[in-house]
Design a protein around this nucleic acid. Structure first.
Lengths: 194, 194
DNA sequence: GCTTGATTTGAACGGGCGTTCAGATACCCT
DNA sequence: AGGGTATCTGAACGCCCGTTCAAATCAAGC
């Protein structure tokens, strides 16, 4: 009989994913070899191929997983109430979610060009869906006369770029707590669409 | 006597830099080989080493050149007048300058991690100087009672992240002209610090 | 405790990497 | 016309790459 419980795969697979995520974030996909990932896991390079058909699929799986997590977490939040409240919830959610997974966020932006065209299309569509969710909030706020936004599509992209920028400088234990950072950014976001 | 005018170096050097810039932007520093760069220039790989001691120096030179250009162009603008006017000038300058050199901007963000520690420090310091220039505008505007900014340091980073985000979606010939984009972003920046 | 299949090893494959350098080439100068 | 040097070629160096696969190892169920 096959071993179904407690098999090494249950342990090795996440360790490979974690090692690949960390190494890709630190050195870049192209600069990291399968042997380096294997070494980080404590295994020979050949063993990785029990878990991924190739290096490209490993990258794609990490990015796809990250985007799926993002959309799932977003939808689980169920933003309710008036537009201002929903925009604030989005702002705080975005900062919190992205700070919690800095490495995944990093490679999701940096390694897009290392995806095959087919894989890139998939990730881009998921990202587009997330952007559309923010744009919907802005559009409804504008229709309700609560927001003044010349172009909701661009405003959505601008806000996301601004918020994601937190990841480039925030370090926990620094001058500001995460809550303070959220408050500062919410202040700017709120005013920028008022 | 040495050939001093019309030497091939005057032609080859910029072609190497242009090819490297373009290839690094498209595929990433680590994924591009010296042989690929040479092929794009129409030369053998060995010839590149008449112009750069090694691949790392070539990358650093491109990034350093970009940052020097940025600071030189910024200082040449001589932002004058009241804080609002200077902030608007900064906003439009940033968008214009960055859209004009999308490839250099791209690698200046993406390839920082492929710099040696020493080279990274140099680029980081130049970037810090640019950020400080924006922060100075915000700080003076706040002191003059024209801006409401809870944290000028973070506001500067947030604004720069928002503005640089234009590069990820803007394509000339698209729905909006560059002037329209500048106007939309200036509207958001202005309000965000009001 | 043996069988069986999941998991891993370790070696090999062809190929590309960054860099070096002796020799060939091309062009300016006298 | 010929000398001299800036520039380039082409081959070579040792090394690492992604991937494959037969054989070894391991652990669960009988």
């Amino acid at each position: 009989m096959a071993r179904t419980t407690g098999s090494h795969a249950d342990i090795t697979r996440p360790r490979i994913r974690a090692a690949a995520l960390s190494l890709f974030a630190r050195h870049g996909y192209a600069a990291v070899s399968m042997r380096q990932i294997a070494r980080a896991v404590g295994v020979q390079a050949g063993a990785l191929y029990n878990y991924t058909p190739d290096k490209q699929s490993l990258l794609f799986s990490l990015l796809k997983g990250h985007m799926d997590d993002l959309l799932a977490a977003f939808e689980a939040e169920r933003f309710l109430g008036p537009p201002e409240q929903r925009l604030e919830a989005f702002t705080r959610f975005h900062i919190r979610f992205h700070l919690e997974r800095a490495e995944a966020v990093f490679i999701s932006y940096m390694e897009l060009r290392n995806l095959t065209e087919e894989n890139f299309t998939v990730i881009e569509e998921l990202r587009r869906r997330y952007e559309a969710a923010l744009e919907a909030i802005l559009r409804e706020g504008r229709q309700a006369g609560r927001f003044t936004v010349p172009d909701t599509k661009i405003a959505a992209l601008a806000i996301i770029a601004m918020l994601t920028g937190v990841n480039t400088w925030y370090r926990s234990g620094g001058r500001l707590s995460q809550g303070e950072v959220e408050a500062i950014y919410w202040d700017m976001v709120r005013k920028s669409v008022s």
